[in-house]
């Protein structure tokens, strides 16, 4: 395969099927559904109509950006400022897509556009773990993963907007932690495929990223802090971990 990031360890790949992608997406569903419902509730409370919530969830399809759009709408922000903010919030997708794109160069342009258009933090995390485990990614698997996430997000947002009044606060149930818990597990799984000799370097890199996040978050928006911490830490890793 061409243009392909080095995977240190190769396992027998799971089948490249939509069904396998659906199966591998399952652990993220609790996060998508609870946050999607919460978004629908918040959006309806911010004065968005059901049609607007539906369009936003299926066309923008970006959790944190959708919440920020609602907050800006309530604050009466001008159109171009909201679009610019959305752009900055979603700029991190550039990194996610650039990391995964080399695995899909053997597929058609159309397939690549479809895969890229539905990439999220969560589907990226699962695909990155699979890529470091198996050294390759399949189109049907990726589409199964992406579509499962996309459809559950869209439907959850719509349900939240429709039935928001009858849904208990997700906070009481602890569901708001689903996303963080999943990122923690994805990080652990990602580290399993690091060769033992490099593990110390990676752990230091994690500490560095965390420290940068705490520093940057105190004086800049969270999404910019994520972007900047990641770029700086990855650069330090490239230079120091051999």
């Amino acid at each position: 395969m061409n243009n392909h990031p080095a995977g240190e360890e190769r396992h027998t790949p799971a089948p490249n099927t939509i069904a396998q992608g659906f199966k591998d997406c399952a652990p993220t569903l609790l996060g998508y559904i609870s946050i999607g419902l919460a978004f629908g509730v918040v959006a309806a409370a911010s004065g968005l109509s059901f049609l607007e919530v539906t369009l936003l969830s299926w066309l923008v399809y970006a959790g944190s950006a959708q919440f920020i759009i609602c907050a800006l709408l309530v604050a009466g922000t001008p159109l171009l400022s909201i679009i610019l903010t959305t752009f900055i919030v979603n700029l991190r997708h550039l990194l996610l897509s650039l990391t995964l794109a080399p695995y899909f160069t053997r597929y058609s342009v159309g397939k690549n556009i479809g895969i890229g258009a539905l990439l999220t933090d969560e589907s990226f995390g699962i695909a990155a773990v699979k890529a470091s485990k198996e050294g390759r990614l399949g189109d049907r698997w990726m589409n199964g993963l992406n579509l499962t996430a996309y459809i559950s997000w869209g439907l959850s947002c719509m349900a939240g907007a429709l039935f928001g009044r009858w849904i208990a606060e997700p906070e009481i149930l602890g569901l708001d932690f689903a996303l963080v818990a999943m990122f923690i597990a994805l990080l652990v799984l990602q580290l399993r495929h690091i060769p033992a000799g490099k593990l110390r370097g990676y752990l230091l890199l994690i500490l560095l990223t965390a420290a940068l996040m705490v520093i940057f978050s105190s004086f800049m928006p969270a999404h910019t802090a994520v972007l900047l911490s990641t770029v700086i830490a990855a650069t330090v890793g490239t230079v120091t971990i051999r």
Partner: peptide
């Protein structure tokens, strides 16, 4: 650049976790 990209998953997952904890 490919080497740099190989560090992105660990770094961005860490950043997203810390974002959640703050």
């Amino acid at each position: 650049l490919l080497r740099w990209l190989s560090f992105i998953p660990v770094c961005i997952l860490t950043a997203l976790i810390v974002q959640g904890l703050l």
